[in-house]
Amino acid sequence: MFSILVDHIEKHFTRVKALNDISFTVDKGELFGFIGPDGAGKTTLFRILTTLLIPDHGKALVNGLDVVKDFRKIRQDIGYMPGKFSLYSDLTVEENLNFYATVFGTTVAENYDLIRDIYSQIEPFKKRMAGKLSGGMKQKLALSCALIHKPSVLILDEPTTGVDAVSRLEFWEMLKRLKNSGISIVVATPYMDEASLCDRVALIQNGKIMAISPPSEVIKTYPRQLFSIKSDDIFSLLNDLRQIPQMHTVFAFGQSAHISFKQEPLTENFLYEYLCKKGHSNIKISHIQATIEDCFMDLMIKPQ
């Protein structure tokens, strides 16, 4: 049985179509990632899975239970971490945790094993108001609260947004450990580097899933040759490259530009000369392997 089964779901808001024909499944104990820009529909989808919204069309099952009909039963089974920090900032760390434990009819002591790894890191601050925690600690507390009733499915909406790099890494370590203990996890993230840590990822944009596959395969499906170009002036480099008619994509990746071509790639020599003529210095051109982000960018422009 799938932990989550979503079958042709659609959701409209007054003016926009937030979700368009979404289907996917999540296996038990799988770490499933959703990657997409803001406004892609991730939060809407997660709210449907957590029974907070009703889909216009289609069916969604969590642990085999229908999100519309059996919403009360589902609410016992899932742990949810909304995108926005949603704990009580005027309650201490400990009080927040205790509150969610009681509300779900359990105690902190009963399920302490499950959250020990995470909670032990913020335990020294347990008397501190939740509103006064740092971003990373807030997320750890929110995860602890979402886990305290031993859910079988964990739904995390951008849990690492606004969290420093070290804390992000720690956070994903914890998710892996939770996954290994048999909990199915669905997680949304805008960070491409986190995608490669998932078992499978779904690329979502404008309410549509464009691809679902393990991160390693997403990379293999990249259909073109990809080059990375560096020069001293990244801004005019991007502009000059975009002038070349044979270009398919030109994207900024940190301090370098990733480019691909519509048909046969131009030679590195040709590019080098072209850029020299435009007055660039320290030009470095290399043939590279596509990353998930490249694949995503490629998929994003496909419809046009």
């Binding site: 609410r75 899932i78 949603s86």
Partner: peptide, 13 residues
């Protein structure tokens, strides 16, 4: 407003 209602709703309360 604070978004905590979202979590309360998802709880079995």
């Amino acid at each position: 407003e604070l978004g905590t209602m979202e979590l309360l709703l998802v709880s079995p309360l």
